[in-house]
């Protein structure tokens, strides 16, 4: 780790100005991913601007429905918040499926959104990686790819996004509030994340110096019937092989509306729009679920070690939809 300066931010505006004005500066939240990367030499900032104590640690109702989650709300507080557990259970479930109790107690909402891939080659500075060193090549594409992408990958990068929380937020159409050098802006979460393309070094569209201050959840009554299912190699404390966040609105056995997002399959949380489209208006039945899941996965392209993710993603989608609609069918 190279030496760096440390400053505690007094307010968002000055934090943004400081980071924007120094190419080697980064924001520090709890550090559970940044410090990890600094130890490995993956990140080498020369200034940390500590934003973890900015007054963004509140969860509050939004005018016109919905909920605003402050950027520094800790993952465990968010998962425990009654409003989240009751109105957006898939989000609480996704948070609780991530990391460990002691990490969730410190990890922040914004930090969770911006955590970087756990691709083993990205984390090992002795191997080439386009995300870490653009142009050096992708070690994963012909390497150990058990955990890698089946959707939306490029020849330059086959990494997946590791967050569980972000999968639920993607299904919920969350909006990310950003403070930047040229003022605030709002981004739909689906616009925040990018596919790797030929710029895998960029996980998101955020510019240097832009700071996430909050995440807004829109009013979404159907989210009260939602869930998050994570399939992983251990029963706990492991990143997803495949995960599914879903919410359904079923009336008289028909899917009036549905939201589905997948984790562990792509460079970003994957909104399963094709599956949603196939399901809207369809009967809440096994065949329809299977058909919709297959529709979503038609473009899936496995790598050497991860062909299993296709049936796993399909079956997990079906399982989740079956679980959410089961009461209806009873």
């Amino acid at each position: 780790m190279i030496p760096f300066d440390y400053e505690r931010a007094d307010d968002a505006r000055s934090a943004v100005a400081t980071v924007a004005g120094r190419p080697g500066a980064v924001f520090l939240g709890a550090g559970t991913n940044l410090v990890d990367h600094m130890k490995l030499g993956v990140a080498n900032p020369d200034l940390l601007v500590d934003v973890s104590r900015l007054p963004f640690d509140v969860i509050e109702p939004l005018q016109g429905g919905g909920v605003r989650i402050g950027a520094t709300v800790r993952n465990s507080d968010l998962a425990a918040a009654p409003v989240i557990r009751q109105r957006y259970p898939m989000l609480a479930a996704a948070l609780l499926a991530g990391a460990s109790g002691q990490l969730r107690n410190v990890a922040t909402t914004a930090g969770n959104l911006l955590q970087r891939t756990r691709c083993v080659y990205f984390q090992d500075v002795t191997t080439p990686c386009n995300k870490r060193r653009p142009g050096s090549g992708c070690s994963a594409v012909e390497g150990y790819t058990r955990d890698h992408a089946i959707l939306g990958a490029s020849p330059h990068c086959v990494a997946v996004h590791p967050s569980d929380m972000a999968v639920a937020l993607t299904a919920l159409d969350a909006v990310v509030q950003v403070e930047g050098p040229s003022g605030p802006r709002s981004l739909a979460i689906s616009d925040l994340y990018r596919l790797p393309g030929d710029q895998p070094q960029r996980d998101t569209v955020l510019e240097h110096g832009e700071l996430i201050t909050a995440v807004d959840l829109p009013e979404l009554p159907m989210a009260a019937r939602s869930s998050y299912r994570k399939v992983r190699d251990r029963a706990s404390y492991a990143f997803a092989l495949v995960s599914v966040a879903a919410a359904v609105d079923v009336v008289d056995g028909v899917m009036r509306d549905v939201r589905i997002a997948l984790g562990g399959v792509a460079h970003k949380p994957w909104r399963a729009s094709r599956a949603e489209e196939a399901l809207r208006g369809a009967p809440a039945a096994e065949d329809a679920f299977r058909h919709a899941a297959d529709a979503e996965l038609t473009e899936a392209r496995p790598l050497r070690d991860n062909a299993f993710k296709i049936p796993m993603a399909r079956n997990t989608m079906v399982t989740v939809l079956r679980g959410l609609t089961w009461e209806e069918g009873r």
Partner: peptide
């Protein structure tokens, strides 16, 4: 390749 406790799983 998986040379840490996140990559090399032991039972929890």
């Amino acid at each position: 390749a998986n040379h840490d406790f996140a990559g090399y799983h032991i039972a929890t």
